[in-house]
């Protein structure tokens, strides 16, 4: 019977039904969220330096606006990336195995908004700390071990690396 169907398929080309269909092929990675959180911290650092320099020239003001704009954009990018992984990748069994997950995502949303509102480096660091925890849970669901290392960025804060 199967051979008959196979022979007809060669001529008729039956449509295929997929049983699995992520787009794009299940490509998820919390790295972008981590980098965005580092960028928020870096902008806080640059803003702090600029304030200390007391540069009120047009160029100084221009810098302040640019730093703030990038901080705002990256805090939003961080939220976006975390939301996508949380909504599209995580499944109920992941949340069951990691009961802190949903509250952590909620905290990240709040922390990113707080980081937008302030120029306090501690707020950026609080965001990164939560995003790193999120990244660790993500890789754990894929049975991939992680390590926290000092990132090679001027922030000199940690980043979560999967052991691939």
């Amino acid at each position: 019977m199967y051979r008959i169907f196979e022979a007809i398929d060669k001529i008729m080309h039956f449509k295929t039904v997929s049983a699995h269909c992520d787009i794009p092929c299940g490509i998820y990675d919390p790295h972008l969220a981590e980098v965005a959180a580092h960028t928020v911290i870096r902008m806080d650092m640059l803003i702090s330096d600029l304030v200390k320099s007391n540069d009120m020239s047009p160029d100084g003001r221009n810098k302040m606006i640019r730093y703030t704009m990038i901080k705002e954009q990256h805090a939003e990018l961080c939220k976006h990336e975390v939301r996508i992984i949380w909504g599209d990748y995580f499944k109920p069994e992941h949340a069951q195995a990691n009961p802190e997950l949903n509250a952590l995502v909620w905290d990240i949303m709040k922390a990113a908004s707080k980081a937008k509102q302030s120029t306090n480096i501690a707020d950026g660091e609080a965001l990164l700390d939560k995003v790193n925890k999120f990244a660790e849970i993500f890789w754990k669901t894929k049975n991939i071990q992680t390590s926290r290392v000092k990132a090679p960025y001027p922030t000199e804060k940690e980043i979560v690396l999967p052991k691939l």
Binding site: D9, M12, K15, T16, V17, S18, A19, H20, C21
Partner: peptide
Amino acid sequence: VSIFRVKDKSM
């Protein structure tokens, strides 16, 4: 009636 070929393993 339609005939389809199954791809992948989710079922």
